[in-house]
């Protein structure tokens, strides 16, 4: 079954076609990377898929049902991670669970024992427990990525959309974050749709790579077949 399907998605802004009759589907449990040159529409595609931007036309299905914000099946890690720098790590993680709490608890910050222990367990898995009281603005790039992952996982999403998640990290740090993330993702059976610039990371952590050029999916290739030439083709286009 497909976790997420986009059917004939068009998005036009100021008469410019950002997404052009785009159709794609991501099988449940798989990891797919979208690659493409700058301005190809990668971020916009994820914003449309997450419901942040309404397409001009076309339809989105999650597990065969028409997209509805109340389904709460999606987790989203935006390009700059979307963390609150002035809050500590624990509170940033708990933000992900807001939707699951009664409103008064969410506003007053009196969380249930179960949610707190879930947060602790995720922080432990992501190796950020020792930073729980540290303000996020004081963390390194890799630590921030892990906080963003924990905040997304505590939502218990079925699908995660991650935009340039490791963009600010060097290769070694990116691999460390992706290793931990992939292990948890597989344990939880999450479908992952992400964008990346690094073909090596795409090859290591995804099943397929979609090549997006000028708002259209040009190719869908198994990640194993990604070569240096593919990368060169991408960035020369």
């Amino acid at each position: 079954m497909d976790a997420i399907s986009l059917n004939s998605i068009r998005l036009t802004i100021n008469e410019k076609k950002i997404l052009d009759n785009l159709t794609m589907s991501i099988p449940q449990g798989s990891a797919v990377t979208i690659m493409g040159p700058n301005g190809a529409g990668k971020t916009t595609l994820l914003r449309v898929a997450s419901g942040l931007v309404r397409p001009t036309s076309g339809e989105i299905y999650l597990f065969g049902k028409k997209f509805d914000k109340n389904q709460r099946l999606l987790g989203y890690i935006p390009q700059n991670l979307g963390l609150v720098g002035e809050l500590d790590v624990f509170t940033n993680v708990m933000i992900g669970a807001l939707r699951r709490m009664p409103r008064w608890r969410a506003i007053s910050g009196t969380y249930t024992k179960d949610t707190v222990s879930e947060a602790y367990s995720l922080m432990y898995d992501l190796k950020i427990s020792h930073l729980k009281d540290t303000k996020v603005k004081k963390l390194s790039g890799g630590e921030k990525q892990r906080v963003a992952i924990a905040r997304t996982l505590i939502q218990k999403p079925s699908i995660i959309l991650a935009d340039e998640m490791t963009a600010s990290l060097d290769f070694k740090a990116a691999v460390t974050v992706m290793d931990i993330f992939t292990e948890i993702k597989e344990k939880m059976g999450i479908t992952l749709l992400m964008t990346h610039h690094n073909p090596e990371i795409a090859k290591m952590y995804s099943d397929n790579v979609l090549i997006l050029i000028n708002g259209k999916i040009e190719k869908n290739i198994p990640s194993k077949e990604i070569t240096k030439e593919t990368a060169e083709y991408l960035y020369e286009t």
Binding site: N70, Y76, P78, G96, L98
Partner: peptide, 21 residues
Amino acid sequence: NVSAYDAMHVIGATRMQIARF
């Protein structure tokens, strides 16, 4: 930071929660 607001919208946070957090 716009991305923090984006993350909150996808989480399904209310306006009050966005203001608070």
